[in-house]
Nucleic acid binder design. Sequence first.
RNA 1: GGGCGGUUAGCUCAGCGGUAGAGCACUGCGCUUACAACGCAGGGGUCGGCGGUUCGAACCCGUCACCGCCCACCA
Length: 838
Amino acid sequence: MNELEERWRSYWEERGIFRYDPSRGREETFVVDTPPPTVSGVLHIGHCYSFTQTDLMVRYRRMQGDNIFYPMGWDDNGLPTERRVQNMFNVRCDPSLPYEGDDLELARGAEGDAKPISRRKFILLCDTVIAEDERAFKTLFQRLALSCDWDQTYTTINDRSRFVSQLSFLHLIEKGEAELRDAPTMWDIDFQSAIAQAEVEDRQKEGAFYKVRFGLEGGDSVVIATTRPELIPACIALAAHPDDDRYKSLIGATAVTPLFAASVPIVADEGADPEKGTGILMICTFGDAADVEWWRELGVPAREIIGRDGRIKPAPWGRGQWESNDPERAAQQHAKLVGLTVNQARREIVAALEAESLIEGEPEKVRRPVKFYEKGDRPLEFVVTRQWFVKILDKKEVLLQQGRKVAWHPHSMSKRYEDWVEGLNQDWCVSRQRYFGVPIPVWYRLRADGTTDHAELILPRKEDLPVDPSAEPPRGFRPEQRGEPGGFVGDPDIFDTWGTSALTPLIPSGWPDDEKRHQALYPGDLRPQAHDIIRTWAFYTITRSYLEDGSIPWKNAAISGFILDPDRKKMSKSKGNVVVPTATLDEFGSDAVRYWAASGRLGWDAAWDPKVLKDGKRLTTKLVNAARLVYGYQGDPGEVASPLDRALIGRLRATIARVTERWDAWEHQNALALTETWFWSDFCDNYLELSKGRAYAADASAIATLRTAMDAVLRLFAPIVPYMTEEIWQSVAGKPDSIHVARWPTAEELPATEDDGCFDAAVAVLTQVRRAKSRAQVSMRFPVELLRVSGPESQLGSLKLVIDDVLDTGNIANYELVADGGAEALTAETHLGQPDAQ
RNA sequence: GGGCGGUUAGCUCAGCGGUAGAGCACUGCGCUUACAACGCAGGGGUCGGCGGUUCGAACCCGUCACCGCCCACCA
């Protein structure tokens, strides 16, 4: 950080310029639900972009007089931290191990196999890593001049967050909105955890359609198409479209699976697409979400063959469990598959089918979407497990309504929210089989025979939260009763990281006990976030607020775009195209980076373009140079009286009104452009030149105008380039307080003057004089012997008012004004004189 | 397959009913008492195509084409 930045950063901190004032009420307070960045090691330039965009609005609101509540949060809860610890220390968490003690030192980057460590030790390491990262993040954000109140910082794993997360979940249980289900759930076989719909993405994968012949009871046969022949042992039915003439006669008949000889019904279903494959398909437990639905409708027992590790499980063919016409053969066939991965099993089954000529023709290559956990490497499987779900499918309509109560910026982003809600097809699975997160605050009663009674929940009292059921016994039980018949067992799982993140509006608000604070801070004003997490963070937050008390969490959602690399590709570590902010900040400075962020509009992805940073740097240089000139003039300000001065202030008044309008419309990029154009063109290029003569002569009107205009334009720039505007405001202009708590400029605070056309007249003539000198290849101070201006009477009248300023600026000796009734604009003839004698 | 957004000067974008704009890049000139990491002047565009509405369309409507993103039950 350079000297200027460091000086003002300390000044702002010492003076508490950005501190929240709890004594002021909700109406005057602007509350930001800051996105807690995932503490995963590195911030990239995209973070600077979006966090700055939030800070722009915050600073604008502060100058409008709002009491700002802008906390920072660190999202340290969850998988990214676990992964980081695993890699950094080369360890893995083994919850069965006892705690090793505090003194165990682990070398970073140790060689060899990952060392197993206890859950408590693992969490301790997570805490250490987080603390380091949080320090680094804070330094960067402070350097960027994010005007947070750092006293309000929270983390998503701290006691307060765990308390809020657990309490809110207990409310959901009370209301019957959260329930434990033993059901097929999307499962990542590598992470060994359940996954929610929002964390799933489709990836196009190569596959092949195998056409497999099934027998029919009565001797005939039918050919189905499948990309997953390994699921034949899990087949529970065949389905065809009810209107498909080819299969109409088979509806209600019974088919027999190849190799496993299981009798399965043939059913009609609208969901079967006659165009796909052979038009008739097999329903398995479970190939995909559709299978799960079909299985529920059929009401038959599942035949689950894929285990949590993604490998084929043993199956109880015969013995009255899994029906088969030839249980021995089925068992024999199945035994060959046990322990194989899905892909291995597929090859095995295809070979067996081919050996019996049960595959028709060549497998047809297809590309089709396959579901993956967004952070995972292998396809998801549907596995029956016991998980906690929050009921959302029955609330689609009301969640759409809640979404419409939020103002989305840009508005088109609301469509993404609505599309997501309308497309929901699963309740929210909130339990995760991970370690570093908020524990699910539930114990279960053990029956006398030692089995778990999942219907007998033991819930903690509010005053005991947060709890860790895997470490603490519930009230009324002794630790020794854990796992004993008649005793208890703790829920081993943690919440989905969104389960806690969805409550970020409640974490710093003091909910539910500090009612006064909560009333002042909830619902919030602004949720800034990127568009990729509308379906998770925005959706879950709206959902949890609704479930908690029917409220919406905030009034506005400002959606920022991504920064792409110059080829418009997403930045990612693996591609090596990530731009690291520190180098950019070193090279261009924070103000320039903020200028760059301000030039991009909300919701729009932008390609990384360092040229804009140069523009930002250029602007701050221009600002300080202009200010040195303006505040350097000697003389006392008087009334804004001269025609040119009155016109300039009139134009500034109009600019302030338009700029303010753009800020209120969440268009910081247009606010910046309008401010910059006025400053650069009207003020610097034209007014500063036209006023020099009078200003050097200490003309009271010119001095007043220069200072008034500069004071206003500095404030217009203050949210965007906070360091340089503060430097000028205090060090150059000598103002006593921070510009960042100065009031936003208004047209009303300025002298009530208007632009009556004389400014344009002066500029029109001046431009033509400059052009003449440029063509004659002489300097701009070269003397003009005679200036003859012709044009319409009214414009000549305007020009007459400011002619002295024009003559002085152009170094013009004599002039003539010639009325030309037919002309529309002023035309200037410039007769150059002789160079000034030295 | 459904939806959303985009297509304006070589590049990045603004304008969204009234005679085409900015910055960068390019050309020429200038060290003029704020600024050469600067200033001044200038060249450059049938505003994706085709229809329509209108006195008038980059801007409104329809349609097509491409680009990006979001979503979609993997048979």
